[in-house]
Design a protein around this nucleic acid. Structure first.
Lengths: 200, 200, 200, 200
DNA sequence: AATGAATGAGCATTCATTCAT
DNA sequence: TATGAATGAATGCTCATTCAT
C-alpha cells in the first residue's frame, strides 16, 4: 500500500518553493529578491512558481499564514497540557524564542521582511497575529481571575508588553552579528515580567 | 529690523521635501513611493529633489538621522533635570510615546517603513538606535547601583524589554484603525515594568 | 528530413537585433538612438534586447567585434591565395572598399558612429583594428624584403597611409549625397600609392 | 588712447568658454561632457554659457568654424609665399601636422569628437572641410598643369588620399599612448605620396 | 552681464508575469 | 505539470536649458 501515488508531492514542490523563498527573502530582502532567484534556489523554472503561487506577494502571504497557524496550533496543543497561567505564559515565551531561534532565516523574514509595508503589516496583524496576541491576553485574564496576576492591569496591554519584549529580543538577535542562543532569554524576560524591576 | 537678509530658506526646501517624503512613505510605503510622488507632494519638480538629496535612499536615511538625533538630544536634556532612575525611566517612556503619538506619519515610517529591509535595519540599529538603547541601559544600571532596581537582572536585557514593550505599543497604535491617545499607555507599561504582574 | 529539430533560431534573434541596431545607429547616431528604437525596428519588445545583449554599449561592441573578425578572417583567406605583395595590397584595398561599399549602414557605423568617443576608439583600435593594420604592414615589409617596395620607407607609416587613404574614400562616400560606386576607387588610390604623384 | 573700454572682453569670456569646452570634450567626450563641467572649467556660472552660445551643440560648431577658418586663412597666407606645387603640398602637410601636433586637446576633438555623429559630420564636411580639401585639390591640379604631377590622376581623389593619410597619422597619434612628435611624419607621408612605394 | 536654483523631458534597464510548446 | 523565452510597464536619475534676481 504505497503512498507514492497519493497527493503528497503536489505540496512537496510548493514546500520547496516556500523554503527557497524564505532563504532568499532572508538574504536580500523581499523587495530586492527576484522571483527568478527563488526559482533558481528551488531548482525549478521561473514559470513553475506561478503554478503554485498567484504572485510574489502570495508567497510571502502563504508563508506567514502557514507559519502562524502552525505556531498557534502547536502552542495551543502544548498549552492544553499546562495548568497554571504562570506556567502557560512561561511556555509561550519559551516556544516563541525557541521556534524563531531555531531558524534564523525564518526569524529574519518574520522580524524584518514582514514589517516592510503597512499593507503587509495590516493584513498580518488582522490575521494570525491577532490570534496569537489573544492567546496571551486570555492567559493573563485567566491568571487575574485566579488571583495569580494583578487585577489592576489591562490584560491586552500586558499581553502587548510581553509580546513586544519577546519580539525585541528576537529582532536584536537577528540583527546582532554575534551568535548567541535565543531561547534562554525567555527566562530573563519573564523574571522582569513576573516580578517587576523594583526591589520591593 | 528685517529678517529678510537672513538665509532662512536654504533648508526650507530641504525641510519641505523631508516632510513630503514622510507623508508619502507613510501613505504607500517606501518601496511603493515614487520620487515623483514626493516632488508633487512638496510642490516642486522631480529634479529638484536631487538638489537636496543624493537619492531616494538618502531621504529616508536623512530623515532617520535627524529624527533620531533630535529625539536623543531632547531626551538627554530632559533627563538631566530629573533625579531618580525611576523617574528617569518614566520620562523616557512618556517622551517615546508622546513624540511618536504626536505625528502619525512619523510613527508609521519609524515603526513600519524603517524596518523593511535588513540593510536599513542594520544601518539604523548601528546608529542612533544603539545610542537610545544605551541611555535606557545606563539608567537601569544606575538604578541598580542605587539599590532602586533589582540587582539580579541584566541591564541590557531589561532595557530591550522596556524598549520592546514601548515599541509594540506604538506599532499597535499605528496599525490600529481605532484612534486613541498613545501617550497614556506609558504609565500602563511602567506599572508592569516596575512592579511585575504577580500579585506578590 | 526535417530541420525542425535543429537549433538554428538561437542566434536568429540576436542577429535581428544586431541588424536593427546598425540600421538605427546609422540613421540617427549611437547616442541619439534609443534602445526602444532598436527593439521596434527588430520587431521585439524592449526587454528582449537584454536577453541577448548586456547593454546598449554591448550591441555596438558586439557588432564591431564580429564585423572586424569576419573581415579579417575573410581577408586572410583571400590573401593566402595571392602571391606577390603588390597584388596582395591591391586585394586588401579592393576588399576594404567592396565590403563597406556594399552596405551603407554598416559603413556609416564604421566610419562615423564608431569614432564618436575616445572610449570606443581606444578600445577598438586596441582590438581588431590593430590586427588589420598589421596585416597591411606585414605585406609591405614582405614587399621590401623581396625588393618590390622601396626600402627607405617605414612599413608601419606606409601602412597607416594606405589605410588612411582608403578610410577617407569611405568616409567621403558615406557623407556624400551623391551615389557612386565605392569599390573602383581602390585602383585610383593604388595608382598613387604604388607610383607616387610625381611625373618622374 | 586706451583699448580697455573697447569690446575685447566680450570675446574674452567667449574665448575662455571655448577653451574650457575643448579641454572638457577632449577629456570625456562630447556626449559625456556636461555644460556644468565646461562652466566650472571656465570659472563661470552654468547660465553664463548661454549668454555666449545658443546650446551645447553651438559650442562645438563654433569651435570647429573658428578653428577651421583660422587654419585655412593661415594656410592661404603661407601658401601665397610659396612657388612650386610640390613645396606647397609639403607646406600644407607640415602645417596640418604641426598645428594639431601642438595641441593634443584640439587634436582629440578634431579627430574623435567631431566625428561622432553624421549630423556633425555632414555639417562639417559641408563647411570648412570642403574648402580645405579644395585647396589641396587645386594645388594638385596646378601641379598637373605645370607638368610636375602625373596627369592620369584625378585631382580630387589624390587630394582625399593625402588628406586621409595625414588624418590617419593624427588619429593614430591621438590614440597612441606613446608620446612622439607628430610633425616629422609629414615628410614620411610625402616621400610615399610623391614617389610611390614601388622601386621603379 | 552674471548667477545658480529650478525645471521637467527623456531613457536605459529591470523584473513580475504570461503563454506557446 | 513544467519550461523559459518573451513581454512591456514602470521608475530613479541626469542634465540641457531657463529665468528671477
Amino acid at each position: 500500500m504505497s503512498r507514492s501515488n497519493a497527493k503528497p508531492f503536489v505540496s512537496d514542490k510548493r514546500e520547496a518553493i516556500l523554503r527557497a523563498a524564505i532563504k532568499v527573502f532572508a538574504g536580500k530582502g523581499y523587495f530586492n529578491s527576484k522571483v527568478a532567484d527563488i526559482a533558481k534556489e528551488a531548482g525549478i523554472a521561473d514559470g513553475t512558481v506561478y503554478l503554485y503561487f498567484k504572485s510574489k506577494d502570495d508567497i510571502l502571504r502563504s508563508f506567514f499564514d502557514r507559519a502562524m497557524s502552525d505556531f498557534i496550533s502547536e502552542g495551543k496543543r502544548e498549552l492544553a497540557e499546562i495548568e497554571g497561567p504562570e506556567d502557560k505564559l512561561r511556555r509561550i515565551a519559551q516556544l516563541h524564542l525557541e521556534r524563531l531561534g531555531a531558524d534564523r532565516d525564518l526569524a529574519i523574514v518574520f522580524q524584518v521582511e514582514l514589517r516592510g509595508s503597512t499593507k503587509f503589516m495590516e493584513e498580518f496583524s488582522a490575521k494570525g497575529f491577532a490570534d496569537y496576541l489573544d492567546i496571551i491576553r486570555a492567559t493573563i485574564a485567566e491568571g487575574q481571575k485566579l488571583g495569580v496576576f494583578r487585577i489592576d492591569l489591562k490584560p491586552i496591554i500586558v499581553a502587548k508588553m510581553l509580546y513586544g519584549a519577546l519580539d525585541e529580543m528576537v529582532t536584536n538577535w537577528v540583527l546582532s552579528h554575534k551568535s548567541y542562543p535565543l531561547a534562554p532569554m525567555a527566562d530573563e524576560v519573564l523574571k522582569v515580567f513576573f516580578g517587576g524591576i523594583l526591589t520591593k
